[in-house]
Amino acid sequence: MAMNEQGVKQVLVKLGAKGSALFVEGEDPIQQPIISASKVLDTTGAGDTFTAAIAVALVEGKSKRESLQFAAAAASLCLQVKGAIPSMPDRKVVLELLQSL
C-alpha cells in the first residue's frame, strides 16, 4: 500500500552525502544536494541538525525549497565541528554560509 493511501501527504528523505528529497502529494519532488563542507570532522548530529533546521525554516514561512537549502547549510556547518552539541550552528552562521553560495 502506498504511503499516500495511508494519509501521508509529505515525506522528507535524508540521503546523507547524496543530499535530501521532499515528496509532496500532487507536486514534483524537490531535491536538495549537499552543501559541501570545507572539512568534515564529525558527522554526529548532522541529521538532527538538518531536521531541526528544516522545521524552523518551514515554521518561519520559508518555501519548501528554501527550507531544504537552509537545512543543508546547517548540516554542512555541523559536520565541521567535533561533537554533537558544539557542532550545532546558530542562525547567523547558517545565513552567512547561504549568502556565500
Rank of each mutant, 00 (worst) to 15 (best):
A21K: 13
V94S: 12
A71C: 05
K39M: 04
L41G: 01
P33G: 13
Q6V: 09
E96K: 14
R91I: 01
G7E: 03
Q99V: 03
G45D: 00
E27N: 12
G19D: 03
A53M: 07
V13K: 14
P89I: 03
M88Q: 09
F50Y: 15
A55W: 04
G45E: 05
K92F: 08
L97A: 02
D28L: 14
K82V: 11
E5V: 09
S20T: 02
I34R: 04
M1T: 08
I85R: 11
I85K: 10
A74M: 04
T44C: 12
E60I: 06
L41R: 10
S100T: 03
L97H: 01
Q10Y: 03
E27A: 14
E5P: 01
A2C: 04
E66T: 00
A46T: 13
V40P: 01
G19E: 02
G61Q: 03
A52L: 04
G45N: 05
K18V: 00
V94C: 06
G83W: 06
S100G: 01
G7F: 07
G47M: 10
A53V: 04
F70M: 04
V40H: 08
T44A: 12
A74W: 01
S100Y: 07
S67Q: 04
C78E: 09
S36W: 01
A52N: 09
L15D: 06
V13E: 12
I54Y: 12
A74Y: 00
L15A: 12
V56G: 01
L79N: 14
E66P: 07
Q31W: 15
V56Y: 13
K62G: 06
A21C: 14
V8L: 14
D48N: 10
L77C: 09
S63W: 09
S38M: 02
A75H: 00
P29R: 08
L41D: 09
A53Q: 08
A57L: 14
K92E: 15
K39N: 02
A75R: 02
T51Q: 09
I34E: 08
E96A: 13
S100M: 08
F23P: 03
C78V: 08
G16A: 14
L15E: 15
G16W: 07
A37E: 05
E27K: 15
G26T: 06
G83T: 09
I34M: 05
A75M: 06
